[in-house]
Amino acid sequence: MKEIIVVMMTMVLLDNIVLAKALGACPLIKLSASAGRSAAVGLAVTFAMIGASLLTWPIDRYWVSPFDLEYFRIFLFIPLIFLAGYLVTAVLKKAAPSYWESMGCTGHLISANCAVAGIAFINIDQGLTYFEAVYSALGAGLGFTGAMVIFAGMKYKIDNANNIPEAFRGIPAYIMALAILSMVFIGVSQAASAFIS
């Protein structure tokens, strides 16, 4: 139990997938709008991450690793990760159409997302057990959701500011905000890791 909590909190606070590893910065900038919508997208991405970890881990343990098929890993994993994202979007469309519409995004930003694929490969690289992998995916998803909700607030402020230089309006200002957020986050996580150890 303790290991699981440690793995999860590490993924949320120390190794935040967006702010400490820069995975999934594109959907963060493109999709975050209001705080509610960002949380919706973040939760969908979380489910896609859990699904991807659930699908890829057994394939790696029982097929790729025993037979030394490492060179085959990408070809097996990418369709599985895509399938996980596709299932999440299909279930969302059927089960909660209003929720899906409120997200207002095309499906491929969830199914083909660097963060979703990245967490599947990171879990395998770190040699986690099955439950640890699932909880690490859950933690990464929660970290992504948190970053997205924070960034939605920053984006609102930037959109309504009227003293930004002409060249920096729009995308450059968003990336600059992400830089400052990431700087703050790295500082906090360094302090937290010093406090824990």
Partner: peptide, 9 residues
């Protein structure tokens, strides 16, 4: 990492 975001911006 923040330096990279900064430069990209």
């Amino acid at each position: 990492l923040p330096g990279g975001f900064f430069l990209l911006s």
